[in-house]
Simulated scan of single mutants.
Amino acid sequence: MRVSAALLCIVTHACWTVDANVEKTVFLAPSPLTLPNVHPSLDDLRLDSLLPALASILETRLPVQFPTKAAPRGLESWYILRGLDDGRRYEVRICWPATQPTDFWLDTYSVTHVLDTPNLLSSLALYSEQRQPNSLDALAPSNEAPLAPQSVLFLRVQAAASYYSNNQTLMKFPPPVDADIILDPYLLNLLPRSLGPTAAYITLVAIGAWFISGFIYRWLLSVAIAAESPAKPHTD
């Protein structure tokens, strides 16, 4: 058991070291929502989407700025989480290199909550406007049938640079941060899917260590008993 405990400590320490530049949020998927197939729709927002079954990892470059009174958490970016399973637990992680010190905040919101909250709706509209092409077609209403119900959430990412430099240009215009945004569903609402292989490996190592330690213990015990047994007297 000492062997398995030591291995578990080593793996846990390694995982903590790898996750040094990771921020995440955990949530339950909402009930499916029927969205009318009219313009403007979610697709018209031109936001990047993450789907657990397809594009669960989004490689991006996030714009950042240093905190100000008006924006204490820097710049805001918006994304759509699609294809969720009602009531299933998920987590969204953002990973970035240590060479780009940044503070991140991640929040998820339902569609109705964003529409009913003026400051969130204003932030979303501003970000969406920045992503629109130069020439826009008229967003005329559509007479097509409503889309199938789907479980959807908005993801807001706030990013603030957290370093200091004597380079005034760098302080005024910090470069975008290379980041991976990961949507990870939970297995049985207990463990992130990406950690499944790691959990299986640790379990196998622990079981193997249990049997090996038991074999070594019995062997050492037999050696000790043999050493303590009195020597057989010799007969002339």
Rank of each mutant, 00 (worst) to 15 (best):
P175Y: 12
S165V: 06
Y127H: 14
Q168A: 08
T112K: 04
N167Q: 06
Q100T: 15
T99M: 06
N119Q: 00
E76D: 12
V157A: 00
Y127N: 06
D184V: 03
A71Q: 08
A140S: 08
P149N: 15
G87T: 06
P174D: 08
G83N: 04
S165L: 12
R89Y: 10
D184S: 11
Y79I: 11
I181F: 10
G196T: 11
A160Y: 02
P192A: 00
Y186L: 03
R156M: 06
L58D: 08
W105E: 10
L190Q: 14
T68Q: 12
T108N: 15
S122M: 03
P133G: 15
R89G: 05
D107M: 10
A179N: 12
T60L: 13
V64W: 03
V157Y: 00
D107T: 08
V114Q: 05
S77K: 01
S56C: 08
Y109W: 12
L81P: 06
L120D: 01
V114E: 10
A200Y: 05
I202F: 06
I182M: 05
L155Y: 02
C95G: 03
Y164V: 04
I181Y: 09
E144Q: 14
I181W: 14
P97G: 09
V111H: 02
L195P: 00
F66V: 01
P133S: 07
V152N: 09
Y201K: 06
S151D: 09
T112D: 11
P149Y: 11
P192D: 00
S142T: 14
T169I: 01
E76A: 13
G196L: 14
A200T: 04
R89E: 07
E59A: 01
L183Y: 04
T102D: 10
G196P: 07
G74V: 01
D103C: 14
F104D: 11
P118V: 00
D178H: 12
A160M: 12
F173Q: 07
S151V: 08
C95R: 10
Y79Q: 15
L191A: 11
Q150L: 07
A160G: 06
I202Y: 01
I182W: 13
Q150M: 09
T68H: 08
P118T: 00
